[in-house]
């Protein structure tokens, strides 16, 4: 992976130099802070229930998961293909895969920082004398990072396919919503195609893998493999699309 670390470093720096990233960070942290306080007050001080709500069962969690990764990945490839920076990168001794992976991991690191605010709330409560279940909280956080990585990989595919960042973001939302809702909608489908969609939906049930493992506080390596494998597959697809677009540039 020649040049991977150089690209990762530049992308992380680049993200933190973008106003949009800071706006998203502040908005997400504020929303999570508000939800944390509201949930604690609403459920009579159930700390673990609050963190379960913040890291998986709230609508706000999924809204952030669907919207944030595409907004962060939208510029990654589409803008650089247009602006020529990708040509600059791919004429350096760097493979296409290293470029895609470096850019993806930078977005995942940013989202990991963003979601780290939830364990911070746990720390605040710990200092106040109420100890959360750190195992469950830690796994909930890991789950959030893995879901972010999966959706960011889909965002990379969208960015590689699009000619403008706006289109990339829109396509990313559509991909994420489709993947998330596919298992629910696929049940009603019939016929051969419906059967294939159902089979795919069973293999790609994000919600199920998050609920059965990370939200329960019981780690199953199969669930980690699920997220890593699908993320890898989508990154591979993004790399091939970049290669294809390079051929026609």
């Amino acid at each position: 992976m020649n040049g991977f670390s150089a690209i990762l470093r530049r992308e992380v720096t680049g993200l933190f130099l973008t106003p949009l990233a800071w706006v998203l960070l502040v908005a997400a942290v504020s929303l999570n802070g508000f939800l944390c306080v509201a949930a604690l007050m609403g459920n009579g001080g159930d700390v673990d229930g609050t963190f379960n709500f913040l890291l998986g069962s709230s609508g706000a969690y999924w809204m952030l998961m669907i919207t944030l990764p595409p907004l962060l990945t939208m510029r990654s490839i589409s803008e650089e293909l247009k602006g020529g920076q990708l040509e600059f990168l791919l004429t350096a001794p760097v493979t296409d895969g290293a470029v895609v992976l470096g850019k993806h991991l930078a977005v995942v690191l940013f989202l990991a920082v963003l979601w780290s605010v939830v364990p911070m709330y746990g720390l605040v409560l710990e200092i106040q004398g109420v100890s959360p279940d750190w195992g469950q909280l830690g796994l909930g956080y890991l789950g959030a990072v893995l879901v972010s990585a999966l959706f960011a990989a889909l965002g990379m595919v969208a960015s590689a396919m699009s000619s403008t960042p706006l289109l990339a973001a829109f396509l990313g939302f559509i991909f994420n919503i489709t993947i998330l809702l596919l298992p629910m909608g696929a049940g009603a489908l019939g016929g051969t195609i419906g059967g294939l969609v159902k089979a795919l939906a069973n293999k790609l049930n994000v919600l199920l893998h998050l609920q059965t493992s990370f939200m329960r506080g019981a780690l199953d390596s199969a669930d980690i493999i699920f997220f890593v494998a699908w993320t890898g597959l989508f990154l591979f697809a993004a790399t091939r699309i970049v290669e294809g677009r390079r051929m026609w540039s």
Binding site: R9, R10, G14
Partner: peptide
């Protein structure tokens, strides 16, 4: 040097050079 000089405009000149250096190991 590609046409249009595609550099990262948000970086300082020294950072751009350092990035190029790291890309080339």
């Amino acid at each position: 040097l590609a046409e249009g000089v595609p550099l990262y405009r948000e970086h300082r000149v020294s950072e751009m050079l350092a990035f190029q250096g790291r890309l080339f190991g």
